[in-house]
């Protein structure tokens, strides 16, 4: 039973990773770039929600909506100002710019909000419930995180597969020039992708703060790296891949912490990633692209 509870807790953590990983993977799929600033968009989302709740005394729902709006606008702004001018240059220069944006956001937050950790208000009582005659105890928070993640996955899959914008996104990710010839506005489609990813980052930030309760300007960096790993793990560019990768990464991390070693959990997580990539070099669900001469 202990195993089952670790498994479900791992799924809770993995769901947060999965939501963040979706942002990485969608942007990678369409713009072929690693958006390093994604982790810091999460951090901005957390601060927005925090100030809405404490300073302006807004309701939970309104705070989350405002955080989503702020992050979405921020995502579009970053894309327009920093990444769009570099669309035709080498991927390395875009990567460095993304790192610059990440540093910028982190330092801006340090100046605006201070470096001291802030305590996130409790949105939900930390109540638990028991199953199987009290053998299995689960918290509502974990369950909520998992449900939110599944809902997002379903909504996103429908959006990408059934709507016109989703179709445009898929077309752009396959071939930008051909998509443009078909009358698709490539620039707008890329902006929409960034907006979506950043909006998801806001939801992830609230879920993260609910689990960790304190946060500071470097909130986004470690979950960012982990989620990025999750995206690669599942096959970067693939939406179901991000989901599977995130969940598996969360489960592996929780299980190693429980059964092997707390200190070495990071090392083991990354070790697993390396092994997976050696067996399947394009991730679990990634497509293998053959090089043509």
């Amino acid at each position: 039973m202990a195993f089952l509870s670790y498994l479900i807790n791992g799924m809770g953590l993995g769901s947060v990773y999965a939501i963040i990983a979706l942002g990485y993977t969608m942007v990678y799929g369409i713009a072929k770039m690693l958006n390093f600033a994604h982790g810091d968009v999460i951090m901005i989302g957390a601060y927005t929600a925090f100030y809405c709740l404490t300073l302006f005394k807004m309701s939970t729902f309104a705070s989350i909506i405002i955080a989503i709006i702020v992050c979405t606008v921020l995502g579009i702004l970053i894309e327009r100002l920093a990444y769009k001018p570099l669309r035709k240059s080498s991927s390395l220069s875009v990567l460095i710019t993304a790192i610059g944006v990440s540093y910028f956001l982190q330092n801006l937050a340090q100046i605006l909000f201070g470096t001291d950790p802030k305590v996130f208000p409790e949105l939900m009582k930390n109540s638990t419930f028991s199953l199987f005659d009290g053998q299995l105890t689960l918290s509502y928070k974990t369950l909520l995180t998992i449900i939110v993640c599944i809902l997002i996955m379903i909504a996103l899959t429908i959006f990408v597969n059934r709507t016109k914008t989703g179709k445009a996104m898929r077309a752009c990710s396959q071939d930008k020039e051909a998509a443009q010839l078909m009358g698709i506005n490539v620039d707008n489609t890329i902006s929409i992708t960034f907006a979506l990813g950043s909006g998801l980052a806001a939801i992830a930030s609230v879920l993260l703060c609910m689990t960790y309760s304190t946060f500071n300007p470097t909130l986004g960096s470690m979950p960012g790296i982990k989620a990025f790993t999750a995206a690669v793990f599942g096959g970067i560019g693939s939406i179901p891949g991000a989901f599977v990768g995130g969940l598996l990464l969360g489960i592996i991390e929780t299980l190693t912490k429980a059964y092997l070693s707390t200190q070495l959990s990071d090392a083991i997580v990354f070790m697993v990633l390396i092994v997976v990539l050696l067996i399947k070099p394009s991730g679990l669900l990634g497509k293998k692209i053959h090089e043509k001469v």
């Binding site: 220069s93 460095i96 710019t97 610059g100 944006v101 540093y103 910028f104 340090q110």
Partner: peptide
């Protein structure tokens, strides 16, 4: 406090100027 902020702005601007 502002030095890392300025550093990051310089970094972004240099990348934009040299690559666009």
């Amino acid at each position: 406090d502002y030095r890392m902020l300025i550093y990051s702005i310089i970094l972004i601007v240099i990348m934009l100027i040299t690559n666009n």
